[in-house]
Design a binder for these strands. Structure first.
Lengths: 189, 189
DNA sequence: ACCTGAACACCGTTCAAGT
DNA sequence: ACCTGAACACCGTTCAAGT
């Protein structure tokens, strides 16, 4: 399932785990999130079984790599809940979300896909962030700034699915602007 | 490359080709466009080499299956070029496009991805349709009905990438509405 | 308790032998 | 000219043997 495993006790295990994460970061950045896991084992200098012991699925690697970023996004959402302009707070956060989720090619789709999937380890990682974004989104909806026929999670899924530049992995301009414009209610401004 | 191969001359070859297409249609509908090609060979009752002779890549199968649909879309775009309301013509066509591209799970992303890729056999198949949609789109842009910072091909790519219901393969509501609303210039209506 | 690498399963792709 | 299926390559996953 989607349990957060406790940190390893033995020092060689902790060292291997760290080496795998460093290798994964490099390999995913270079080859995208579909890269062969073999490349990661090789670069980390560990056997294949060791990778599987530490990270039973590819998604567990994503979770470990994305943890800090997602926590930052969660924090930013909470901060923006105190900002006066609901619509521009929402837009600012969505741009940040898009940026964070595209640091590794393919990561955006992985995060977006796991967001609402209870069998994915991505789901528990993102749950707090989702909750706080949902508040931010609901606040904008209540003020009439954005359409009400779409849920907060759907917005995140949609942004995560926007087509990417194959070279940089970033969302192609102006897809995010189109979506943001489509979310905002024109009769409100 | 992306050549349109001539139809086979020998009757057994033609029969095998037909059997492969019927099997592919069934398998892709049931298992999506990522289904093992092995399943298609098996269901068609032919050897693996035969599949590769007729359809050198998975995308060549898509092209054969999508040909009729894409030609219909092309025809519809030409018809709509004579309709008076540019914006509603555009919207009507985009809904038709979304519907056509989601008849097989995963097909939408395949078509959207191959649309602008000169190495894909999807590209030459869709070229006429793209041209006529581009006219439809340009007409709406000239009238000020839609934003001008996005190209016609980008619109098709964006619609093709919208998240799908895993069960039905169809675009989830209201993603297409959000995008359409985002394309339309609110100061125009 | 943890690591290693051989072994297995799966799938795509090629090609020598056959008709 | 076309078909077939064995053979190969690649990658993910498991597990028996080792420390």
């Amino acid at each position: 399932m989607a349990e957060a495993e406790p940190p390893p006790t033995r020092s060689d295990a902790r060292h291997n785990r760290e080496a795998l994460l460093i290798a994964a970061e490099d390999v995913f950045t270079r080859l995208g999130t579909d890269a062969p896991l073999q490349a990661i084992c090789q670069q980390a200098g560990v056997g294949r079984g060791t990778l599987y012991r530490h990270f039973p699925t590819r998604e567990h690697l994503f979770v470990a790599l994305m943890r800090e970023r997602v926590e930052e996004l969660d924090l930013r959402a909470r901060t923006l809940l105190d900002a006066p302009d609901t619509a521009s707070s929402l837009v600012e956060w969505l741009r940040l979300y898009d940026r964070s989720a595209t640091d590794y090619p393919g990561m955006s789709a992985q995060v977006g896909g796991g967001l609402a999937d209870s069998t994915s380890p991505v789901e528990p990682l993102c749950r707090p962030m989702k909750r706080n974004f949902a508040k931010l989104f609901a606040r904008a909806q209540e003020e009439g700034a954005v359409r009400t026929d779409i849920s907060a999670v759907q917005v995140l899924t949609l942004v995560g699915a926007l087509p990417k530049d194959p070279a940089t992995g970033r969302t192609v301009t102006p897809y995010l602007d189109v979506v943001i414009n489509g979310l905002l209610r024109s009769d409100h401004k």
